[in-house]
Simulated scan of single mutants.
Amino acid sequence: MNDNRLLQYESQLNNFLTEAFLRHNIECNIEKDLIVFPHLYMTAWTRIFNRSSSPMATILQIDIHLEIGMGKTIIESCAGMGMDEDTAIKDAWKNFLTNSFHTLLSAFFSKEFDHHINNQQWIIDGRTYDVTISNVTTRGSHPDPLPLRWLEQLEEIIRIQSLTEGTHWVRFYYAQSESELISGEILLDNEVWTGIEKFVRTFDFPTYKDFFSMRVFMVLKDHSDISRMAATMAWMVGEDDDAIEQQMMADGLSLSDADKANTFIPLAFGRVFLKGITTAGFSDEAIVTDETGKETTIKLSDEPIYTSAYRLAEKIMKEGCVNQEHFQNLFIQSAEFNAYNNALKDGAKVEDMNNARFGEPVIYMPHYQPAEKKEYTTENIITEDACKKKKKPSWKFWKK
C-alpha cells in the first residue's frame, strides 16, 4: 500500500471516528486533519500502518490518537486482517469499537453509555482514581466460561503501584496457543510497563489447545492532571480568570487548586520557554498576598501544581504538542516573559538580557492554601505491601 493510499484511508477513518462520536451525541468537527471537540478542549486523529508480511493477506494497524490534555495523548492501536485493504480496515475498526471506544467515551465524554464498560474507584498511593475498564475482548477459541482470575490479579497489582498524579491508561494483551504463552504485553501510557511486565506473565491465565487472545483497556483518572488544566487555559485564552477557574472547578479541582493552576502554569511555562532561549535565572521563592495584603513567602518547589507544570512545559519544549499556538498562549501570559520582551523592545541588548536574574514574583491569591508535602516518584514499582469568588486584580508584578 503506497503512502497516498494510506493518507486516503486516514481521512476516511477520521470521518468514521467523527461519525461514531456524533452518533453518541458528542459535538465534534473536522478541522484540517484533526477532529476537534470544542467544548471539551480535546482533539483526535487516526493513523494507519501496513503490517502485512504475506501477499496472501492484508494486516493493517490503526492508531487512534486522543489528545486529552496539552502534551498528553492516548494512542490506542487495533489490528485488522482480511483478504484486501477494505476488509482489513473494517476488521480493525470493529475491534476498536468493541474494545476501546466506549472506554474512552465513558472516561472523557459521556456516562450515558456506561453499560458497555465497567466503572470503579480505586485508591492508589493515597489518591482516588476513577477507573474505566473495557470488557474483555477475545479472538480465537477459548474455554467457556472464560476464567477471569487473571483480571483480578491485574487489578491487584495496579492498585499497589506508585503512579504520578494525573490521568493514566493501561493496555493489556495476552495470547496463547496449545496451552503455551505467546504474548503477555502490558503498556502504561503508551510505553511498556517494565516494572510489572514480568509479574503479569505469572498470572493465572486460562489455557486451551487452540489459539486465543484476550485484550483489556482501562483509563485511570484523578483530578490533578496538569495537562488538562493547561489545555483548559490554552483553549479559553482571552476569557477572564473567573470563567477559567470555574471550568477547572467543574472538572473537579478545588477553588484553591484552580487559583494555583491559573497562576502557576503561565509562570512555569514562561520560565521554561525563557530557559530554552536564554541563560536567565529565576528565584525558587515567591510572595503570596491575600485580600488583606498579608504576605507569605513560599517555595515554588514545594508546590506540586507548579512543579508538574514545569515538567510538562519541558516535555512540550522537547517533544512538541498538537497545537503550538496553545503552548504560546500560556507562556506569553508570564510576567517574566513580558518583562524580557518589553526590555528588548525598549532597547536592551540581547546579550545582557540573556543573563537576566529575576527576583521573587509577587502573586495575589486570596484562597491560597499550602500544598501537602508529599513526594511523587516518576518510577512505577511494586511496593512491599500489597464557588464563586471576587474577581482578582492583575496578580503578576516584580519586586525591584
Results as ranks from 00 to 15, higher is better:
residue 34 L to G: 10
residue 113 F to L: 07
residue 357 R to S: 07
residue 65 H to C: 05
residue 282 F to H: 14
residue 384 E to T: 15
residue 291 E to M: 15
residue 368 Y to R: 10
residue 299 K to H: 15
residue 51 R to I: 03
residue 273 F to G: 02
residue 101 F to G: 03
residue 205 F to R: 10
residue 280 A to V: 05
residue 357 R to K: 10
residue 338 N to K: 14
residue 381 I to Y: 12
residue 307 T to K: 01
residue 189 D to E: 06
residue 152 E to P: 06
residue 68 I to W: 00
residue 288 V to R: 01
residue 154 L to E: 03
residue 181 L to V: 10
residue 242 D to V: 07
residue 397 F to W: 11
residue 210 D to S: 02
residue 371 A to K: 04
residue 365 M to L: 10
residue 281 G to P: 06
residue 325 E to S: 09
residue 317 M to F: 11
residue 25 N to P: 09
residue 279 T to L: 10
residue 277 I to C: 05
residue 196 I to L: 13
residue 350 V to E: 07
residue 282 F to M: 04
residue 89 I to L: 03
residue 130 D to V: 09
residue 278 T to D: 07
residue 353 M to R: 06
residue 138 T to H: 06
residue 196 I to H: 09
residue 280 A to S: 10
residue 400 K to V: 10
residue 134 S to T: 06
residue 167 T to H: 02
residue 44 A to S: 10
residue 64 I to S: 01
residue 298 I to G: 01
residue 305 I to C: 01
residue 155 E to P: 01
residue 121 Q to G: 04
residue 62 I to E: 00
residue 77 S to K: 14
residue 197 E to N: 11
residue 69 G to I: 00
residue 297 T to Y: 10
residue 384 E to F: 14
residue 315 K to F: 04
residue 361 P to A: 11
residue 337 F to D: 05
residue 219 V to P: 04
residue 400 K to F: 14
residue 277 I to V: 09
residue 379 E to A: 12
residue 198 K to N: 10
residue 398 W to Q: 15
residue 345 K to S: 12
residue 343 A to E: 10
residue 318 K to E: 13
residue 288 V to S: 03
residue 112 E to I: 08
residue 251 D to H: 03
residue 268 A to P: 11
residue 369 Q to A: 15
residue 315 K to W: 04
residue 265 I to R: 01
residue 36 V to D: 13
residue 236 M to R: 08
residue 145 P to K: 07
residue 393 P to V: 15
residue 280 A to E: 04
residue 117 I to W: 08
residue 314 E to W: 08
residue 210 D to G: 00
residue 389 K to Y: 08
residue 158 I to W: 00
residue 261 A to M: 04
residue 51 R to M: 07
residue 53 S to R: 11
residue 273 F to K: 03
residue 217 F to K: 01
residue 308 S to F: 02
residue 295 E to D: 12
residue 237 V to P: 01
residue 324 Q to Y: 07
residue 86 D to H: 08
residue 395 W to V: 13
residue 70 M to Q: 03
residue 56 M to H: 05
